[in-house]
Design a protein around this nucleic acid. Structure first.
Length: 736
DNA sequence: CTGCAGACCTGCGTC
DNA sequence: AGGTCTGCAG
């Protein structure tokens, strides 16, 4: 069979990666080097050149979007969908294994997946039942602790005992949480992975079956794998199978959620005869942009080493704009966007990237004022929205009235006279008798255990759910019709309609969208492990964000955080708010390794740009209600100077005469000088790290500085008075 | 039981 | 500044 079509359109390195022998291989794919392309062609190659059945292949990604894209591109290249191949996210595949082998995994058949919101609710519920002090152990932190343990593959029993009461409390909470999940058949996201790993570990026959089945496993974004994902992969691949890991250590930006960059660095230790290929030719960006990215990232240690290059010319230098404040910064960005638009460019080809979501508001306001369409990426997932989760909870309750989580959620939504007091009583009875809340409610109604008014409200609710249950049984109704009826019977539409503002309108829209999504849901696509379309739909709703942005196809400027920009590309990119304390985030200064991660995040940002990149920062910024003065980010200094140019806006904005913008290149020089002088603030005797004394605020530590001459200011962390910025020429500071 | 007013906290956010 | 959560008045 002629397989040349698979290799024809590739460069030498890509071809080497695609046509590599059937052995373990690591493809270090730089930004814009054709990573997905290699992965897809590799799959086609394995199928055609080695005649491996798609049934024997598994491809793992991190997001549903990536999984869908891969599936679509395989189909495009090969001509037919890869029948029998497993393509999915880590969680999706783990879930599939658990549904198929629920008994071996020690689960009940009806187990349910919780999202982070459900998890938090459960933790709160447990803590309240046990009367644990929520100020000492904040529920959010408890969740965070549990998830971090699971990322590391540890159950409560594996958490090492430490002797401080706080950690002990955390561990204890984990125990109680585990118990509650077990009892109610609930699995959080981390549990899916942990359980799938244990399933393989404790069932050698099953493990052997899958090891023999999957001849080759492919993993995308390998630098993002955490400990448990890595352990599971090692098991699944085994001694006989092999792996193709594709990733980029320079784009590892999820350390805070358990990703271990070491996994990619240590790959050769655990997978024998690892064949490493570097893809360094970039097809996305201009020379200047790549040079800037290379220069920046070279400041990180412990890299596997990679240098991007292109043969498509230098392009324009990167423009740096110093805004007077965040308003000015936004105005500048929109000015450039208008220029590009008027030159005939599509808005969807322009992206504004920022470090944190809070930064988007000022930019949005400016876009609205100028009537430029925009779209914000990320933010709330469709199925995470309150109104959607409520509708889904009604469906859950209709399927299984003993689902306490769902019951708690909707028993009084919309309000129907069942308040905290009544719910408390139901909960109490349920706990005393070890039955579900539904059964408890049933007793209240039949034995009149509560005042008539409350009992009647409960009775009404139960009849409502029973009605929904029979709707569910109606074989003539499709999934969409069922949701339509559930929403109508629950009265969710009028409930949200009377909400004030545009919020309610949006919620009603979303509910309609849910009916749409349910009608369009194709059960057959999701294979044989599910007992009913409704069950499959509910699981999918938890695992898939549901990209349901209504105006997805409208031509609009793209706004997103740097994190959600990974994997995307745009001809015109703005990186906004590139200031010390913001980017790199001040929180990255404390923990070792975090600054490097911030730098990688900046690298990701730079490499999103195809033709033109603007870096902007503001000299003063209002954030969280108070004003801060940050110096330009160190990352700007780390970019080779010849790649940069300073820009000023022609239409000058009004600014106080006294606040002249300092010359940008001068400020860089100044900072370089500062570094050479060991962070000494010019013309003073105060240095970073000095202890100083202030006549009013008392003693403190100098933690930051900026400006020079009469404007020079230092940030002092006072022992008692907190952190303050002081102008050196006014504040009478004494160095201790 | 419900609705409003003040306290709180505040990074990124897949599944 | 702004959303969520808790506490009190109707």
């Amino acid at each position: 069979m002629d397989v040349s079509f698979i290799l024809d359109a590739l460069n030498d390195k890509q071809r080497e990666a695609v046509a590599a022998p059937l052995q373990n291989s690591l493809v270090l794919a730089g930004a814009g080097s054709g990573k997905t392309r290699v992965l897809v062609h590799r799959i086609a190659w394995l199928m055609h050149a080695y005649e491996i059945s798609p049934y024997s292949l598994m491809a793992v990604t991190f997001t549903n979007k990536a999984a869908r894209e891969m599936q679509a591109r395989i189909e495009q290249l090969v001509g037919v969908p890869p029948q029998g191949m497993w393509v999915g996210t880590f969680h999706g595949i783990a879930h599939r294994l658990l549904r198929a082998h629920w008994r071996d995994a020690g689960l009940k058949e009806s187990f349910q997946i919780m999202d982070s919101d459900d998890q938090l609710r459960l933790v709160k519920r447990i803590m309240r039942e046990l009367s644990i002090d929520e100020t000492r152990w904040p529920p959010k932190q408890v969740c965070w602790f549990i998830n971090a343990q699971k990322d590391e593959g540890r159950r409560a029993a594996h958490v090492p005992d430490s002797h401080d009461p706080f950690s002990r409390g955390m561990r204890e909470m984990y125990y109680h949480y585990e118990e509650a999940c077990e009892k109610n058949g609930l699995l959080d996201f981390g549990e899916l992975l942990l359980r799938a790993h244990e399933l393989m570990l404790t069932n050698p026959a099953l493990l052997k079956h899958y090891q023999q089945r999957f001849v080759h496993v492919l993993v995308d974004e390998f630098q993002d794998t955490n400990t448990i994902q890595y352990a599971w992969l090692r098991l699944m691949v085994g001694e006989e199978g092999s792996i193709t890991a594709v990733g980029d250590d320079d784009q590892s930006i999820y350390g805070w959620r358990g990703a271990k960059i070491e996994n990619i660095q240590n790959l050769s230790k655990h997978f024998k005869d690892l064949h490493t290929i570097r893809l360094e030719q970039n097809y996305r960006s201009t020379g200047h942009i790549l040079k800037a990215a290379n220069g920046l990232i070279s400041n990180n240690d412990d890299r596997l080493g990679k240098e991007l290059w292109t043969d498509s010319g230098e392009g324009e230098p990167i423009s740096v704009y110093a805004g007077f404040n965040e308003q000015d910064e936004a105005r500048f960005i929109i000015e450039i966007i208008k220029k590009w638009r008027d030159d005939g460019n599509a808005l969807k080809d322009m992206a504004i990237l920022y470090r944190s979501n809070a930064q988007s508001r000022v930019i949005e306001e400016c876009l609205v004022r100028e009537q430029i369409a925009y779209r914000i990426y990320g933010g709330h997932r469709f199925y995470d929205r309150l109104e959607i989760k409520n509708a889904l909870a009604y469906a859950r309750l209709a399927i299984d009235p003993n689902d306490d989580g769902a019951m708690e959620r909707v028993i009084n939504v919309p309000t129907r006279g069942i308040g905290e007091r009544s719910i408390g009583t139901i909960r109490e009875i349920a706990r005393d008798q070890g039955c579900s809340m539904w059964q408890a409610a049933d007793q209240i109604v039949t034995h009149s255990l509560m005042p008539a008014r409350a009992a009647n409200a409960i009775k009404g609710f139960m009849q409502l759910i029973q009605g929904m249950a029979s709707t569910l049984q109606n074989p003539d109704l499709g999934l969409g019709d069922i949701f339509d009826q559930i929403i109508a019977e629950a009265g969710l539409i009028p409930y949200h309609e009377k909400e004030k503002g545009e919020k309610g309108e949006a919620r009603v829209e979303n509910l309609k969208e849910l009916v749409n999504a349910a009608s369009g849901f194709n059960w057959l696509e999701t294979d044989e492990e599910f007992s009913s379309p409704m069950m499959a739909f509910l699981d999918q709703a938890v695992l898939d964000a549901g990209e349901a942005q209504a105006d997805e196809y409208q031509d609009s400027v793209q706004l997103m955080t740097l994190h959600s920009a990974k994997g995307l590309e745009f001809p015109l990119v703005f990186m906004a708010g590139v200031e010390e304390n913001l980017f790199p985030s001040r929180m990255s200064f404390e923990e070792p390794g975090r600054l490097e991660e911030e730098r990688r995040l900046c690298y990701v940002g730079i490499t999103r740009a195809m033709q033109k990149l603007y870096i902007t920062y503001a000299e003063s910024r209002r954030l969280h209600g108070s004003e801060s003065f940050n110096s330009p980010s160190r990352f700007i200094r780390e970019i080779p100077e010849e790649c940069l140019e300073e820009v000023r806006l022609r239409s000058q904005v009004a600014r106080p005469v006294s606040m002249q913008r300092p010359d940008y290149s001068a400020s860089i020089q100044r900072q370089n000088q500062n570094i050479m002088q060991g962070h000494t603030v010019p013309e003073t005797n105060v240095s970073m790290g000095d202890r100083v004394k202030h006549p009013i605020f008392g003693e403190g530590l100098v933690v930051n500085y900026e400006g020079q001459g009469p404007q020079a200011r230092v940030q002092v962390n006072f022992d008692d008075a907190g952190t303050k910025w002081l102008v050196l020429s006014f504040a009478k500071l004494e160095v201790l």
